[in-house]
Amino acid sequence: MASRRPTSPDDEVVLELRRIDQGRLAVMAYSSLDALVECCGGQQPWVATTPAELDDWVRRSEADGFLWDAEIPEEHQHGPFGDDVISRKDDEDA
């Protein structure tokens, strides 16, 4: 699952949520690490879980559901430094 990058080893896992239709929130779940990297890029922080635990993660994160193997547009993917999302389009304009 896509997550936020922890700032220390003691940090709790914080899942990365995306807005879907009608303002609902969804957990980003992936069928494999390869699928996550293909859909979100190599800088995406992640946490491993089992399909049986997915509903519990959704409930605990207060999301409305989950998206399975959803692709994140490249301009919205994480960059190499911290959790900042870099805009490759902005880089091209510079």
Rank of each mutant, 00 (worst) to 15 (best):
1 M>T: 03
2 A>Y: 08
2 A>Q: 01
3 S>C: 04
4 R>W: 09
5 R>D: 04
6 P>A: 04
6 P>Q: 15
7 T>M: 11
7 T>S: 13
8 S>T: 11
9 P>G: 06
9 P>H: 09
9 P>M: 10
12 E>G: 09
14 V>H: 14
15 L>Q: 01
17 L>W: 00
19 R>L: 15
20 I>F: 07
21 D>V: 14
21 D>W: 14
24 R>T: 13
26 A>W: 00
28 M>F: 12
29 A>C: 11
29 A>P: 04
30 Y>K: 07
30 Y>T: 03
31 S>R: 15
31 S>E: 15
35 A>M: 13
36 L>Q: 04
37 V>G: 03
37 V>L: 12
38 E>A: 14
38 E>M: 08
41 G>D: 04
41 G>V: 04
44 Q>G: 08
44 Q>A: 09
44 Q>Y: 09
48 A>F: 13
48 A>L: 13
48 A>R: 08
50 T>W: 10
51 P>L: 10
51 P>E: 10
52 A>Y: 05
55 D>V: 11
57 W>T: 05
58 V>G: 00
58 V>Y: 11
66 F>I: 00
68 W>R: 03
69 D>H: 02
69 D>A: 01
70 A>P: 01
70 A>C: 05
71 E>I: 15
71 E>V: 15
72 I>N: 07
72 I>V: 14
72 I>P: 00
73 P>L: 10
74 E>A: 11
75 E>A: 12
75 E>P: 01
76 H>I: 04
76 H>G: 02
77 Q>L: 02
77 Q>H: 06
77 Q>R: 14
78 H>V: 11
79 G>M: 08
79 G>E: 05
80 P>Y: 11
81 F>M: 12
81 F>H: 10
81 F>N: 13
82 G>N: 03
82 G>Q: 11
83 D>K: 00
83 D>Q: 07
83 D>H: 01
84 D>Q: 09
84 D>K: 08
84 D>R: 05
85 V>E: 10
86 I>D: 08
87 S>I: 02
87 S>R: 01
90 D>N: 14
91 D>T: 02
92 E>D: 15
92 E>M: 07
93 D>S: 15
93 D>H: 15
94 A>Q: 06
